[in-house]
Design a protein around this nucleic acid. Structure first.
Lengths: 164, 164
DNA sequence: GCATAATAGGTGCGTGAGCACTTATCTGTC
DNA sequence: GACAGATAAGTGCTCACGCACCTATTATGC
C-alpha cells in the first residue's frame, strides 16, 4: 500500500460544512448576480459596486485610492474599472485640486439612473435567493458574526503552540 | 435640485450588514488564501480545490465534468486547470474506457503529497482567521443556514407580486 | 531651498477564465 | 443499422485583472 493511501489532514466535517458552505453559497450567488447585472445592465459586479459606493458618499465623488481601498480589486484594477465606467458615461474623472497627483471618480446622472435600475433587480435577487431565507434576528446574528471575523486582525496569541 | 439627488432604493442597514459582511469576509479570506497557497505551494485556490476534491473520492479520480459541476468554474475553465495540474505532475489525465468521449483526472502521488503540504497551512489559516471565531454550536448553526440557502431553488412563489 | 523618499494614478505584459465553436463519441428513432 | 441530435472535452478569441514599473506630484530631511 503506497504512502498515497495515508489519511490526509483536513477540516472536521462540521468545519467543512461551515466554511465550504460559505464558499458554495458565495459562488452560486455571484454567478446569479453576474449574470443578472450583465443581462439587464451590461455591467459587472465590481463596476456595480463602484457605482454603489460612489452613490453613498457626499457629492457622489471619491478619490480613486479610496474606492480601491474599499473594493476587492487593486488600485490598478480600479483604475481600469473607472476607465470603463467613464467610457460609457456612468462616471467622470476629475483631477483633484488639493493634490494634483490624485483624481476623483464622480458618479454622473446617467450613472445614478443606471444604478437605480441595477439596484432594483439586484436587491430583489439577493433578497429572494439569500436574505429572505432568514428572519431579522438571524440577519442580526449573521451581521454580528461577520463583525467578529472582521475585528480579527492578526494576533500571535491566536497561534497555539504545540503542547510539549 | 436635479433628479440625481433623489434617494436610491437599496438594502436596509440590517440586510446590508448581513449580505455586505458576507462579501467582505469572503473577499478578505480569499486574498489571504490565494497569497498563502501561491507562496507556499505555487498553486491557485481553484487548483487546490480540484486536488482536494480528487482526494475525497474513491480511486482519487473523477470525470472532468463532475469536477466542473462541483467547482465554481465552467467546464472550459476546469479543462485548463487540469491541464496546468497535469503539466506540473500533480494529476494525470486518462481517457474513460466506458465513454470514450470522456476523461478522468487522477490525483498522482505527487499531487497527494502536495495537497498534504497545502492543506496543513491552509487549514491552520482558515481556522485562525475564521473558524476559530465560532463555537461548535455556532458552526452548526452556520452550516444549517448554508443548507437552507442551498435548498432554495428557484420558486415563483418567492416572487411577491406588487400589491394593487 | 534642494535632494531624496514617498505617494497617486496609470500602463505593458502575462495569465486566467468565459463564450462560442469544433471534434469525437454516444443515444435514440425509424 | 443509419442518421439526427445530444453530450464530453478541448480550443480560439477576447477581456479582466495583478504585478512590476513609469510619471507626476507632494512630503521630508538637511
Amino acid at each position: 500500500m503506497s504512502s498515497s493511501e495515508t489519511e490526509i489532514e483536513a477540516f472536521t466535517p462540521l468545519e467543512g460544512d461551515a466554511w465550504g458552505g460559505l464558499l458554495g453559497v458565495h459562488g452560486r450567488m455571484m454567478r446569479l448576480i453576474e449574470r443578472d447585472l450583465a443581462e439587464r445592465c451590461q455591467i459587472s459586479h465590481v463596476e456595480f459596486e463602484v457605482l454603489l459606493r460612489l452613490s453613498w458618499v457626499e457629492g457622489r465623488r471619491m478619490r480613486i485610492q479610496d474606492v480601491a481601498a474599499e473594493s476587492v480589486l487593486t488600485r490598478s484594477g480600479i483604475s481600469r474599472v473607472v476607465e470603463r465606467l467613464e467610457r460609457v458615461g456612468l462616471v467622470n474623472r476629475e483631477s483633484a485640486p488639493e493634490d494634483r497627483r490624485g483624481a476623483y471618480a464622480i458618479l454622473t446622472d446617467a450613472g445614478v439612473s443606471m444604478l437605480r435600475t441595477a439596484l432594483e433587480g439586484h436587491v430583489a435577487l439577493v433578497r429572494e435567493r439569500f436574505l429572505n431565507q432568514f428572519g431579522p434576528d438571524e440577519l442580526e446574528q449573521m451581521a454580528a458574526w461577520w463583525r467578529r471575523v472582521e475585528d480579527t486582525r492578526y494576533d500571535p496569541r491566536n497561534h497555539r503552540s504545540e503542547p510539549t
